[in-house]
Design a protein around this nucleic acid. Sequence first.
RNA 1: UGGGGCGUCGCCAAGCGGUAAGGCACGGGGUUUUGAUCCCCGCAUUCGCAGGUUCGAAUCCUGCCGCCCCAGCCA
Length: 585
Amino acid sequence: MSTDSAAKPAADATAEPRDFVRQIVRDDLASGRQAAIRTRFPPEPNGYLHIGHAKAICLSFGIAREFGGWCNLRLDDTNPGKENPEFVEGIKEDVRWLGYDWHELRHASDYFEVFYRAAVKLIEDGVAYVDDLDAEQVRAYRGTLTEPGRNSPFRDRSVAENLDLFRRMRAGEFDDGSKTLRAKIDMAAGNINLRDPALYRIRKVTHQNTGDAWPIYPMYDFAHALSDALEGITHSLCTLEFEDHRPLYDWCVDKVDLPNHPELWQPLIDAGLPTTPAKPRQIEFSRLNLSYCITSKRKLAQLVNEGHVDGWDDPRMNTLRGLRRRGFTPAGLRLLIERVGISKQNSVIDYAVLEGCIREDLDATSPRRMAVLDPLKLVVTNLPADHEETLAFANHPKDESFGTRDVPFSPQVWIEREDFAEVPPKGFKRLIPGGEVRLRGVGIVKCEEVIKDADGHVTELHVTLDPESRHGLPGADRKVKGTIHWVSAKHAVDTEVRLYDRLFSVPAPDDESDGQPWTAHINPEAKRITRGWLEPAAAGAAAEQRFQFERIGYFVADRVDHRPDAPVFNRIVTLRDTWAKQAGA
RNA sequence: UGGGGCGUCGCCAAGCGGUAAGGCACGGGGUUUUGAUCCCCGCAUUCGCAGGUUCGAAUCCUGCCGCCCCAGCCA
């Protein structure tokens, strides 16, 4: 063994994620239990994807990629009427945006005929029956958490009768809700999911894919387990609340036994859908919860429908399209998922962790620009009024590959109002009367005069530029406490700036134990529209192009409203600001 | 008085009987023409609690305590 090969695994061990799911996957591969890794991401198309889904996506698609396997995108469309094809396109777009691509796009509805045949098989095998109890009666017979349920009076129908009834259900002979097909398991099971769960219900509703072909639709547990098996999924990853369903999942997979009953899935082969059934294993992990965020589809829809936000892609929304429009990056989101890890512990991640991940990605990938959001005029009096020059600025302080850009300079510039203080707070490093500060890329400037209006408001600053300190000259090395940014007034481009902040003012908006509805915690300050001045090189940005406006934060050209001749920039996130933190504390 | 999970630093999270990884946050120092970034250093004698087994326990056993999920013909 060379030291070379001995050192390598150690380095890898710290680099690759070692969560329990990946350990299982690794073991299955090493033991030969699985020859390849097959996963799936199975959203129900009844809403847009949100930040919580990012974890499931990164896990299932990520593991498939890491281990050289594949991941399917499967739309779980077993409940017509609640689902909408509008969301299908959105889901596909969001998954791709996050950086993943699926092996095959499937719909649970692709398998309706297989599910039906499988149900018939279960009836023939004596482990499923048609029940005439209505919803309320079923509930009454189910028992409670602490008391066992009772058998339905229809539980012991003959196979022949069950077959006849189920075929007639399929033929549309019965009304919605009048009958169900149930698994015959154990009405006394401690796990309520095993108390003869429904497998099929009657619902005469037009389905988005299958139209009116079916009056009956399979339930989640049945459809999901069989879909996984049909697709040859090896590791079916889902969230903690499905832990209780695993025995039923396994029951469905085992009782139907697809691999040994090709006649059940022949229709897929006939339709040209590659099918190699296998026995999948369900593994549960905890959801991603973030403070200041809401990840309930119902509540997200409510925000949109009640007009609290401007749409599913409103930059305040923690939907994936909202985060995208806000300017958050796929890499930043992936970093969050990696950083947060995978376990079975319920947890809430500080929103600041998300912001930190976004900053980390943006710092490395965003070209720098200068912009002034709250302008104060500063005049360099020892330069001719018509002086004009072009300065070359590096686009990134640490990465030369970003190149340089031209920045026009003239004696009248805009600076940030808060970069000047007549009476500076302790520790202030910016411009004060009689004080010096560096004008970024220009030189050191001294405040000679403060001009005020009749009300005593500062309207203009007169400064002199130390010619020895001009950028590039030896004198430029002279130390001054602060450096401030600026935009040449003559060349500045007017822009709309949308300042975004957290949508909720409390860390746990879902918590209503204070007696307040969750909507009471919507932060009215989460969106503020203002204007600013940009250096010319920022104005011409393409939609969705991101920049760091130096000393302010990261901004993105709005993907729908931005135009080079009428720029619109969204604030993605501010820069980390230890000065503001110290001043605020 | 049911079933299923989970309790390791402020927030995450490794740990798999041999004497508490790492990240984020935080504190201190350095570099810096962004109070950004970056770089150092520090940060759990202790693993929900109590017993027990063992030369040795966060890891095994027993009993408590706490939190989450489950009674849709939703997913």
